[in-house]
Amino acid sequence: MVPNRTCALCHTSKPILRRPKTGQQLCKPCFFYVFETEVHETIIGTNLFQQGEKVAIGASGGKDSTVLAHVLTVLNERYGYGLQLHLLSIDEGITGYRDDSLKSVKRNQQEYGLPLKILGYDELYGWTMDRVVEQIGRKNNCTFCGVFRRQALDRGAASLDADHIVTGHNADDTAETVLMNILRGDIARLGRCTAICTKGEDSIKRSKPFKYAYEKEIVMYAYFKKLDYFSTECLYAPDAYRGHARVFLKDLEAARPSAIIDIIHSGEAFQVAQDVELKPQQFCQRCGYMASNELCKACTLLESLEKGMGKLAVGDRNRRKLDDEPMPQGMRTIPMFQRSATTDSASPL
């Protein structure tokens, strides 16, 4: 593409990039301005935060969470959100991957001066992902990791007494999730996956300020700001099925860049029909975390690992086999989930 002479926004400086989202050729300061302003408008337009809220930033050390920590720090200061920001990292126990990425989180902590809490799977569940993979192999290990991480984040945030968890999920992730839920027929998730903020009963608010930010623009922002992040993919094989949807989405984006935003819009434009029955939410009888069955998914998976039957835990077909197996002596369980009430009375920004 032939570069324009001047930036499409300020019309004075020389452009150095083409925005993936709009195709506009911009200079560096204008790109920073639009990127940060769009995140700010997402936050303000959706009343995401409340003044004085304690917010835990889910920090993995990857590009998304690194940029999120940076941008939230900048916006909090610039617009006076009055947020108490904390970094919250989950150590899944993947040697050669998470230990390295946590080093980058620690460097960011020092740079932004934010308090950091690291909670490990080992500490919470008594299992590291290395050991999980040792038992179940690489197939379906993402299911264990995803379920464990979700609960670990909630528990980590509860221990910080945080009101809100923010994650670096970007527009590409949201669009991919819409597609995945359609392909899997997961109606319950399809109905809520485009919500910018989700909050179960008695659980901490969880939101995605980068919901409309393109992944490529996040990388651009990190690149031009020279942010320190860890870019290696997880060592354990990615979900092959999700990989299909991801490749498809990238192809769509190449053919028409607005496809990502268009898919998110589709997801926001429909809802689950009233006559479709969804499982009511309840609380896990063993650990008190929110669940759709008697036991939450994390307790079920942990039990299967403890019984040495981790391979049977994914899917409902083998549930009876798992239940019939007696509990081993001294089986580890997840501690009871306790958290103080959130401060809903605070005023919005």
Binding site: R184, H244, F270, Q271, V272
Partner: peptide, 20 residues
């Protein structure tokens, strides 16, 4: 070819959603 039931799942999913 790879996940044959997915094709009918897409169609079934569409029956369970309505305009927001």
């Amino acid at each position: 070819r790879d996940y044959p039931s997915t094709v009918s799942t897409i169609s079934k999913t569409a029956t369970k959603v309505v305009p927001a």
